[in-house]
Design a protein around this nucleic acid. Structure first.
Length: 882
RNA sequence: GGGCGAUUAGCUCAAUGGCUAGAGCACCUCGUUUACACCGAGGGGGUUAUAGGUUCGAGUCCUAUAUCGCCCACCA
C-alpha cells in the first residue's frame, strides 16, 4: 500500500501537473479528433503589469467551461493573448522611466520610446503567462497572440481601411475630451465623472450702454475669456427683453450678444449661461447652431492661450483664482456658492479633463452605408448571442441606442499608428505606405485636390486600444482565411468583467458584426468585480491588494479557483477574504482525504467506470448510487445553463454531506469496494473543471499514471476523460426514503445522547424486535443492539422512525417531562403541516392549477408527516406510561 | 435627470413561482470512533427592508416607499 500524505502537496504538484498537461499536448485542439468544437478566445489582459484577482476570476470561469466542454468530447480551443493597452501602458512605462532613470518619453523620442515599450510588454507578457499557468487555465499557448503581432494587427487595420471606404470613419474637428497629462484625446467611455465639492461663481456681465448687468453662473470662470455669447431660454420671461442685446465681456472688453436657446435650463443658476464654444460640449453645440466664434483660450497643457491676454501662460486653476480676484476687485463678482458638481477625469491617470476642439478621427456609428447602431441592435435582439446575466442585454441595448460618434485617435506614442498618409492636400488610406506618385491605385482615397510634390507623411495619431481589442475574436483567429477562423468562428464563449461592458463587449459586437457579418460569440458571460472583504475595490493606492499568486502559494490554485466562483451570480460583485479561500482549501483537503480513505480501505481498490445493478449489495450502495446519478444529472444541467455556482454547490453537498459523511462511514462497516470506486471516479470527473489539480493528481495515482509522457494512453488522463452521464436506471426514490429513515434513527440516538449529556462514547444497550442494520447503527450511533430476545418493553422508550424501531432502557436518565414537551411540540408542528398540505389538496383551485408533480409531492409529503406523527404519538403514549 | 442592481441568520452569500428559506464563516456544548482537528457529533440564531397587489401558492411576479451601491447624461 502506498503512503499518502494527509494533505495534497499543491505547492509541489500543481506546477508539475500543469507542465505534464502541457507536455502531453492536451491544451492544443489539433490533438483532438473530435468534430464537435468549442472555442473561447480569452480576453487579453494588458501586458504591462501582473495578474490580479479579477483576471484570476475570469480565467477560472473560462477554464471551467473549457474543461467541461473538453470532457464532453469537444475539440476545445482556449486562445490566450495579451493586449498592448495603449494609454495605460504608456502611463505605466512613463512612470517607470521617470522613477528609474529620471527621464520622460521626450528624452527618448518617439521611436526609442516605442521600442522600449514593446520590449517592456514582451517582458511583462512572459511574466503574466507564468501567472496564468499557475491558475491552471488549459489554454493553447502555442497559439498565443499579442494585439501588435503583425498578422493580428493587419486584420484590425484592414477594418479601418474598409470603414474608411464605407464612409464609417472620418477626420473632423469636434469638441473632445482632452487629458492634459496624457496629452491625448479620449473617447467618452474613457472619462470618469465623479462628484466633487466645488464653487459656483455668479458673475455680472455689464450690458452695453447701460448700468445694468446680466448675471451668469459658472463653475469654471476661467473659460469666460473665450465666451462668445450669453444664452437664455426663450421661454424665460425674466430675460425676454435681453435677447439680442449686447454685453461687454469683463476682463476682455469684448462685445458679445445675448442669444436664446431652448437647451438652457431655466431652473439652474441664474438662467443665463455664458457660452464658451471651444471649451464645453454643450456650448460647442450651441455655438455651432448659432454660428458663434470658437475662441480657444485653453491649450493642450491646460494653460491659458495668448487670447487670454494677461492670463496667458497660467494654468487653468491659477487663472481661475486670479480671474475671480480680478472680478471681485472690479465689483463684478456677485457671489460665490458652494456646490457639488460632476467633474471629469481621465480614466487612466485621474487628471482633470479639458474639453477642447480638436481634429480627430471618429467612427460614424450611424452611417448611410452601414449603421453600427442599427446592425448591432439587430444582432443583440436576434437572440444569436446569449447574455449572462440576461438583464445586461437591456443595458447594452440602451447604451448602443444612445451611441455618439466614437473618437478613435489618440496622440500617444504607444500603439499602432493610423494607416493614413498625407502629401500636401492628398490623403492616402491603406495598409502600406504609398510609394511613387500615384497612391490612388492602391486605394481610391485621395481628396480631389491635385498631388503636390513632397514626401508622404504618415498620420501621427495612434489608435484607441479598444479599436483593435474589439476585433480580438476574429483577429486572434486569423480572419478571414486562417484555419482557426474557419474552424472556430463564431466563437462559443466570451467571458469578461462587467466593467468592460461598454469599453469592450459592446464594441466587439459592433465590429464583429460589421467585419464578419456574424456575432463574434454565441454566449457572452459577465463576471462581477472581485472586491475585498469590506466591499472595497482593490487598488494600489488603498494598499488592499491581494496578489493571487500569494494566495495560490498559501492555499493552492484549486482553493483560489473555488473561492472565486462559488456563491457568485454572473455580473454580480463578490467579496473575497482569506477565510473564504481557507474554507475551500479545507474542501480540497476533504476531497483528498476521501481519496485517502478509499486507497487504504482495500488493497484492490481502483476507480470503476461502470457498474450494474448486481453490484449494488446493500441499501447504502443503492442509496449512494441513486444520489450520485441524480447529482450527475443536476450538475450537468447547471453546467449547460452556465450556472457554475449551483453546479458546484450541488457537487459539494453530495461529496461532503452524502458521500463522505454517510457512505464512507458505512463503508467502513460493510465494504463494497466497487461502488466506492465508482462514486469516486465520477466525483473526480465532475470536480475536475473546478479543481483540476487535485483531481488529476488523484486520478493519476489511481491509474498508476505517468501523465505527460509521450505515448501515454489519453484515456488515463482526467482532463480528457469523458464527463459522466446520469444513469437513470439507478435512480429510485424508495432507496432514498429508506436510507433517510436509517439516518433519522441514528440521528435520533445521537440527539438523545447530546440532550442528556450522555458521553457520546458510551455504548447504550438497545433492543430490537425485527431485522435492522445492526452493525451500521451500532457503530454510527454508538449503541449495542440485542436482537430478537424477549425484553420488557414497558420499561423502555421506543425510538422509532416509520420503518425502524429500537427500544432503549434509559428511562431513569431521561427527563420524561422534557421529552413529552418536545414530542408534543413536534406533534403540533407536524399537525400544522398536515393541515396545511391537506388544505391545499382540498382547494379546488390548487388541484386544478398546480402541475401533477406538485400534487403528487404534496400527497407523498402528507403520508410522510402522518407517519412521523404516528411515531411521535406512540412516543407520547410510552412516556406517559413510564 | 435617466437607467440598473442590491436589501434573506452576527458576517459573506445561495435558493428554475411549489418539500418546514439553505450553505460557508463566526458562535455555544461535546469528542484523540486510525481518511480528514484543514475533522466529527449536537445546538442556538430568520416577520426574506417596508406597505399594498397578482396567484391555489410569493424570498421569487407587479406597484409604490426607504436605504445602499453602480452605470449613463451637455445642469453651466
Amino acid at each position: 500500500m502506498r503512503e499518502i500524505s494527509k494533505q495534497f502537496d499543491f505547492k509541489k504538484r500543481e506546477s508539475e501537473i500543469y507542465a505534464s498537461w502541457e507536455a502531453g499536448g492536451f491544451f492544443n485542439p489539433d490533438n483532438s479528433k473530435s468534430s464537435k468544437k468549442y472555442c473561447n478566445v480569452l480576453p487579453p489582459p494588458n501586458a504591462n503589469g501582473e495578474l490580479h484577482l479579477g483576471h484570476a476570476c475570469g480565467y477560472t470561469v473560462m477554464d471551467i467551461f473549457g474543461r467541461y466542454e473538453r470532457m464532453n468530447g469537444k475539440k476545445v480551443l482556449l486562445l490566450p493573448g495579451k493586449d498592448h493597452a495603449g494609454i495605460q501602458t504608456q502611463v505605466v512605462y512613463e512612470k517607470k522611466i521617470k522613477a528609474e532613470r529620471g527621464i520622460s518619453r521626450h528624452d527618448l523620442g518617439r521611436e526609442k520610446f516605442y521600442q522600449e515599450s514593446y520590449a517592456f510588454c514582451t517582458d511583462r507578457s512572459n511574466y503574466m503567462r507564468s501567472q496564468e499557468k499557475k491558475i491552471g487555465i488549459s489554454a493553447d499557448w502555442s497559439r498565443e497572440k499579442f494585439t501588435l503581432d503583425p498578422d493580428t494587427l493587419k486584420i484590425a487595420m484592414e477594418t479601418f481601411v474598409k470603414m474608411y471606404r464605407d464612409g464609417l470613419v472620418y477626420k473632423g474637428e469636434r469638441i473632445i475630451n482632452w487629458c492634459p497629462r496624457c496629452a491625448t484625446a479620449l473617447s467618452d467611455v474613457e472619462v470618469i465623472h465623479h462628484e466633487k465639492e466645488g464653487k459656483m461663481y455668479y458673475i455680472k456681465y455689464p450690458i452695453k450702454d447701460s448700468k445694468e448687468f446680466l448675471v451668469v453662473a459658472t463653475t469654471r470662470p476661467e473659460t469666460m475669456l473665450g465666451d462668445t455669447a450669453v444664452a437664455v431660454n426663450p421661454k424665460d420671461k425674466r430675460f425676454l427683453g435681453f435677447i439680442g442685446q449686447t454685453l461687454i465681456l469683463p476682463l476682455q472688453d469684448r462685445e458679445i450678444s445675448v442669444i436664446a436657446d431652448r437647451r438652457i435650463d431655466m431652473e439652474f443658476g441664474t438662467g443665463a449661461v455664458k457660452i464658451t464654444p471651444a471649451h464645453d460640449p454643450l456650448d460647442w453645440k450651441i455655438g455651432k447652431d448659432h454660428k458663434l466664434e470658437e475662441l480657444q483660450v485653453i491649450n493642450e497643457k491646460a494653460e491659458i492661450t495668448e487670447i487670454g491676454g494677461k492670463y496667458a501662460g497660467m494654468d487653468v486653476l491659477a487663472a481661475r483664482k486670479q480671474i475671480v480676484a480680478d472680478l471681485a476687485e472690479l465689483g463684478l463678482l456677485e457671489k460665490e456658492e458652494a456646490l457639488t458638481n460632476n467633474i471629469s477625469i481621465c480614466e487612466r491617470c485621474k487628471t482633470a479633463i479639458e474639453p477642447l476642439i480638436s481634429k480627430q478621427w471618429f467612427v460614424n456609428v450611424d452611417g448611410e452605408k452601414y449603421s453600427f447602431k442599427k446592425e448591432t441592435l439587430a444582432l443583440i435582439k436576434s437572440g444569436k448571442v446569449d447574455i449572462y446575466p440576461e438583464n445586461f442585454k437591456k443595458i447594452l441595448i440602451n447604451w448602443i441606442s444612445n451611441l455618439e460618434d466614437w473618437c478613435i485617435s489618440r496622440q500617444i506614442w504607444w500603439g499602432p499608428q493610423f494607416p493614413v498618409w498625407y502629401r500636401g492636400e492628398e490623403v492616402y488610406v491603406g495598409l502600406e505606405a504609398p510609394k511613387g506618385k500615384n497612391p490612388a491605385s492602391a486605394a481610391k482615397a485621395s481628396t480631389d485636390k491635385k498631388a503636390t510634390a513632397g514626401e508622404w507623411i504618415q498620420d501621427e495619431n495612434t489608435f484607441d486600444t479598444w479599436f483593435s481589442s474589439s476585433q480580438w475574436p476574429y483577429t486572434a483567429l486569423g480572419y478571414p482565411k486562417g484555419k482557426d477562423y474557419r474552424n472556430f468562428y463564431p466563437t462559443d464563449m466570451m467571458i469578461t468583467g462587467r466593467d468592460l461592458l461598454f469599453f469592450w463587449a459592446a464594441r466587439m459586437l459592433m465590429l464583429g458584426a460589421y467585419r464578419t457579418g456574424q456575432t463574434p460569440f454565441k454566449h457572452l458571460y459577465f463576471t462581477g468585480l472581485v472586491l475585498d472583504k469590506d466591499g472595497q475595490k482593490f487598488s494600489k493606492s488603498k494598499g488592499n491588494g491581494v496578489d493571487p499568486m500569494e494566495t495560490i502559494e498559501k492555499f493552492g490554485a484549486d482553493a483560489l479557483r473555488l473561492s472565486l466562483v462559488m456563491d457568485i451570480a454572473p455580473g454580480q460583485d463578490t467579496r473575497l477574504s482569506e477565510e473564504k479561500v481557507e474554507s475551500f482549501r479545507n474542501f480540497v483537503t476533504k476531497l483528498w482525504n476521501i481519496f485517502r480513505y478509499c486507497e487504504q480501505s482495500d488493497a484492490n481498490f481502483g476507480l470503476v467506470e461502470k457498474i450494474s445493478k448486481k453490484d449494488l449489495k446493500t441499501l447504502s450502495d443503492r442509496w449512494i448510487v441513486c444520489e450520485l446519478e441524480e447529482t450527475v444529472g443536476k450538475v450537468t444541467q447547471f453546467m449547460k445553463d452556465k450556472n457554475i455556482s449551483l453546479a458546484q454547490d450541488t457537487l459539494r453537498k453530495f461529496t461532503w454531506d452524502s458521500f463522505a459523511a454517510w457512505y464512507v462511514e458505512i463503508h467502513k462497516i460493510e465494504k463494497n469496494t466497487k461502488v466506492l470506486g465508482y462514486v469516486l471516479d465520477r466525483i473526480l470527473k465532475m470536480w475536475h473543471p473546478f479543481t483540476p489539480f487535485v483531481t488529476e493528481e488523484i486520478y493519476q495515482i489511481m491509474n498508476k499514471g505517468t501523465l505527460g509522457v509521450l505515448g501515454h494512453p489519453v484515456s488515463k488522463v482526467l482532463m480528457v476523460a469523458a464527463w459522466p452521464k446520469s444513469e437513470k436506471k439507478f435512480v429510485d426514490r424508495e432507496f432514498k426514503k429508506d436510507f433517510r429513515d436509517l439516518v433519522n434513527l441514528i440521528t435520533m440516538i445521537r440527539n438523545l445522547k447530546s440532550s442528556y449529556r450522555i458521553d457520546p462514547a458510551q455504548i447504550l444497550e438497545v433492543y430490537c424486535e425485527g431485522k435492522i442494520e445492526k452493525d451500521i447503527i451500532e457503530k454510527l450511533a454508538r449503541v449495542s443492539i440485542t436482537q430478537g430476545v424477549a425484553f420488557n418493553k414497558r420499561k423502555m422508550i421506543k425510538l422509532s422512525t416509520p420503518r425502524r424501531a429500537l427500544f432503549l432502557d434509559i428511562a431513569k436518565s431521561v427527563d420524561i417531562a422534557k421529552e413529552l414537551e418536545n414530542a408534543q411540540k413536534e406533534i403540533a408542528e407536524l399537525e400544522g403541516l398536515v393541515g396545511k398540505n391537506e388544505g391545499m389538496l382540498k382547494n379546488k383551485n390548487f388541484v386544478a392549477g398546480a402541475p401533477a408533480t406538485v400534487i403528487e409531492a404534496t400527497k407523498t409529503r402528507i403520508v410522510e408527516y402522518k407517519n412521523r406523527l404516528k411515531v411521535k404519538k406512540e412516543l407520547v403514549k410510552d412516556l406517559g406510561r413510564l
